[in-house]
Amino acid sequence: MNAETMSEAPLLSVRGLTKRYGGRIGCAEVDLDLWPGEVLGIVGESGSGKSTLLACLAGHLEADGGTARYDGRDVLTLPEPERRRLARTDWAFVHQHARDGLRMNVSAGGNVGERLMAGGARHYGDIRATAEDWLARVEIDPARIDDRPSQFSGGMQQRLQIARGLVTGPRLVLMDEPTGGLDVSVQARLLDLLRGLVRRMGLAAIVVTHDIGVVRLLADRLMVMKDGRVVEAGLTDRVLDDPQHGYTQLLVSSVLPT
């Protein structure tokens, strides 16, 4: 990479993000920068604050402090209409449970087309063609465009959720345990798909997971969280192979050999 692209501003720049639940800390003083084409993994055990951080960025939770600049604007203080517009055009959120991210009583095509229609698309034929294209891209047979997600396997539902989010060509994808609950072989397929999409679309992604294996294969950089704070961050393989913090060492040494 040359110096010119190296110096470009980050797509998302978070400083001092803090969320409290009463007296308890959800996440505290989190800083992170994310550039286009980059996947940032966030690992930590349950209660480490990784999901709270993601929820604050996505606007699902209101942060108590800090800033999150995206395109020069602080998304934490964005008025709700603008934040929701951002969420359905330029950002995508992939939920752990597909049923939280899909309309289960709407066909696959309708699910993929919703963001297009919300953005003003009014040509049925075009919407359908785009939906078919996206189903193929996430390796779902376009012939199943009129089937409902309830007729799909868990892995297919997750891929449909990704197609639904990416159809508007977002620049930032937030993923909460995207491979959680899936069989190992299905996980691998999903990871491969995500890597390809990140590369081809130049997406930036934040992936929250407790699965070290997932971040090793998916994330360029890694943040380790404990008790709401970032204890270590850096290149994924460096953090995992030469962990500097005691907690990271414990986390890495606790992974069962595959």
Partner: peptide
């Protein structure tokens, strides 16, 4: 920075390890 090291590896620094670490099924 992590990003600079990643860029170095991408274009300048090649590495052949003894172990293969890839997404299964690719």
């Amino acid at each position: 920075s992590a990003r600079e090291v990643a860029a170095l590896r991408r274009g300048t620094l090649g590495y052949v390890s003894q172990f293969l670490r890839v997404v299964p099924r690719v």
